[in-house]
Design a protein around this nucleic acid. Structure first.
Lengths: 193, 193, 193, 193
DNA sequence: GATGAATGAGCGTTCATTCAT
DNA sequence: CATGAATGAACGCTCATTCAT
């Protein structure tokens, strides 16, 4: 019940969980997840003490993966707007390329089995994004607001945009661009670019 | 000739459902809802055929209530920004004054027991808001985007703001004002006001 | 809860009960019976204290009706075989003309809610048949067996024949005739007729 | 690699089901059956998907057991009457030795949860009896009747006789003998033996 | 008396978790 | 370690019966 060897099996369970949650919701039986992972009923509990544990670890894993995808290849210096644009694009691309993970994440985000601790853990994975936003908002209309609130606003717009992109794949790029401009107006205000 | 079916009881069940869902989530036992409503186990099913039915009717009721609260006293004419501000304020005020209903609504919004039909029914309750947004975005940066996407973006910002206001009641007004400006920037762009 | 006026309503409930039991079985809700009888939920319990009571009274009523149908117009004297044949024909005819009542009766016959008392009550309704069988078996192979056993054997053959007649209405008369000869052989033996 | 599914437990559940159904009827709670089998509530559903499934499998099992008991040791050739007598005796003996199974079978026989498929499956177990009856009726009064009807008549007499034997164990043998002669008269007519 | 809303015990089935193999 | 059988608490829903109108 501790932390057993096979990292492969562990990963398989997490992947299966995301997939099953995406289609069946959080009430999906653990047995369904185990089956999808090609693992026995009981094995799941060898890797995760509890269904709740599994949910929390999955939440952190997905959120981390998403954060890493967003900042991958992000230039360390340069024009802030361009760098944010880069991040925004990769972020939304990850979401639209991984619709199941995204759906699972959306469910986990509001699940009350996911603890405050997990939410806190995850904040670290967004440090790069936070720093970038900090730079972008300098001198703008939200410079005196708590950064966390800015993050939340940005995240909300991103979420809504992801939904729209997944729902209408044809307009995905257009939605992404429109939303980026909106975000920029939110955090940087009516500046020329 | 017998006791008539009581609208009061029905309302009590809906209210109890919102409250219980807010604290226990959508998996809360129907028995808990009935108990909280001061009604017997079986009575709940006299007023609502199914747990799913209850969820759907609750969703529509809450969404309608929220919509009506938002447009209450909305002047029919006048400066669009002022009118949107009026609506925004009442909207967020309802949410912060009814945190349980809001939490329940958040859960129902993503529940897959809530039918497409229910979501459609609810769209009408947002007609006033939609029309106002249509006016506000005229000539602005999102004038050519589907209105539905603008509604979603606005809703997402509102949701995030509600969360923040409930989490930090001390900064509620400040968050509300900040977010309104952000929304205005999103839909009307860098116009003077 | 005693015995209220409207004999009509009472009869309607019994009729509805037979019909509903025939199609839904003994586990059919009392509400279904009440509805079919055009009577309210609660009224049923004004006429019958209990579902079990209803079953018992229905059993007696149906069995009585069947018994009376069988002996209707039965000549009081004359050739025993002819008289038995008369009774047999009317008996089976009632069953095939009232398939719902018959089905209900078949279910009630084996229901353990139907008390021994009800079974005893019903025995009286078969007195005429018993007397006739007593006459018929005189000097035959079952003259020394308990009459009750002869009655049971006869009833079993009749039941099986009714089933067959209802299942294959085309061969109804043929089955009836074949079975009568069988019965006659059982009780009167290899006598010429 | 895990504990294998236990044929013993499965059998225990079937046995318990027969016993509980015999005393409480088909509406007996599955929990009562599980308890009687010394098995947990949930285990029952590991071995039988559904209460209905359990009923069907029990029906087939009991009917098969009864059929096998009847033909056990049946000489393949020889005097037809003697062979039928052998079968008849063993058949009724099984019923009187297993009154609970017999009661359960009687209930299942008329239950509408028991599928047509189950009834068909069971028909095979009576093939030997059918063939024997076919031989016995040759040249007799029911030689031109559908064999199925003859089987039904025979079964009805057997059933009634079993009831009588169980009710009056003192006269069991006498009832059995009397009924056999009756059956013989039915199918073979007034032949000397 | 008649109605039908109200009650609450009860049931079939599921599923997270444990444990024998 | 892995498996899957075993467990039993829990839940949604039904329905006989009671009772307010």
């Amino acid at each position: 019940m501790a932390r057993p060897r096979s990292e492969t099996r562990r990963a398989a369970i997490l992947t299966a969980a995301a997939s099953v949650i995406a289609t069946e919701g959080l009430t999906a039986p653990t047995a369904a997840i185990a089956k999808q992972a090609g693992v026995s009923n009981g094995s799941l509990f060898l890797y995760f003490d509890t269904k709740t544990t599994l949910f929390n670890e999955l939440y952190v894993a997905l959120k981390t993966e998403m954060g890493e995808a967003a900042v991958e290849g992000l230039p360390e210096t340069g024009d802030a707007r361009k760098r944010l644009r880069h991040l925004w694009t990769r972020w939304l691309r990850w979401a639209t390329s991984n619709p199941e993970k995204r759906r699972a994440l959306a469910q986990l985000e509001v699940a009350d089995e996911v603890t405050a601790e997990s939410h806190r853990l995850v904040r670290d994975t967004q440090r790069d994004m936070a720093e970038l936003l900090e730079t972008c908002r300098e001198g703008g209309p939200v410079q005196d607001v708590p950064l966390s609130f800015v993050l939340i606003l940005t995240g909300a717009i991103a979420d809504a945009t992801m939904d729209a992109m997944i729902r209408e794949p044809g307009n995905a790029d257009s939605h992404s661009a429109t939303a980026f401009e909106a975000v920029w107006r939110v955090i940087a205000g009516p500046t020329a670019h």
